[in-house]
């Protein structure tokens, strides 16, 4: 089948096998490799993208289900013409990335959490990011980064 989707603001018409995952279409057909190929069982969150305003694990999302959807990947988080948004800047200033493998999924999941109006509270942010595993940082600096943006965006 052919799907028509919007990816990071751009319309995309793509021939796909509808039972393929969004992750494989993003990486192998659209060459958007910021979205990471992690556990493939929905546990690690490295493949998190936003589909119609909801964060999903793209490794389990079959593309036949999302014809017409509006998709944001890590490549589209900053918006056109910008290197990074405030959340990505905060990850840098707080030292919230080490090896970096989880970072795209972590940023995308955190961005949607912020858009959903998460309480500016460490526990709420931890709960909201429970589906994103990081083996390096111990999470504290990630939570600090997200918390700083949650507070800044309230002003």
């Amino acid at each position: 089948m052919r799907i028509s989707i919007t990816v990071n603001g751009d319309p995309v018409v793509q021939p796909v096998d509808p039972s393929d995952t969004l992750l494989s279409v993003l990486r192998e057909q659209l060459h958007l490799i910021g979205t990471k190929w992690g556990c493939l069982t929905g546990d690690c969150g490295a493949c998190t993208v936003i589909v119609d305003g909801r964060s999903v694990v793209s490794c389990l999302q079959t593309v036949g289900q999302i014809d017409g959807a509006d998709i944001t990947t890590i490549e589209g988080i900053a918006g056109r013409g910008r290197m990074m948004n405030d959340l990505q800047e905060a990850f840098v200033t707080h030292g919230a990335a080490q090896c970096g493998f989880c970072t795209p999924g972590m940023v995308v999941a955190a961005e949607q959490l912020l858009r959903d109006g998460v309480e500016p509270d460490g526990a709420a942010i931890r709960e909201g990011l429970a589906g994103n595993l990081c083996r390096c940082t111990g999470y504290s600096k990630i939570i600090d980064a997200v918390l700083s943006v949650a507070l800044a965006r309230m002003e």
Binding site: G42, G45, T48, R54, S55, V56, Q61, A109, Q112, G131
Partner: peptide
């Protein structure tokens, strides 16, 4: 149940 991402699906 699961994570936010899993619960969205």
């Amino acid at each position: 149940l699961g994570s936010v991402q899993i619960r969205n699906m």
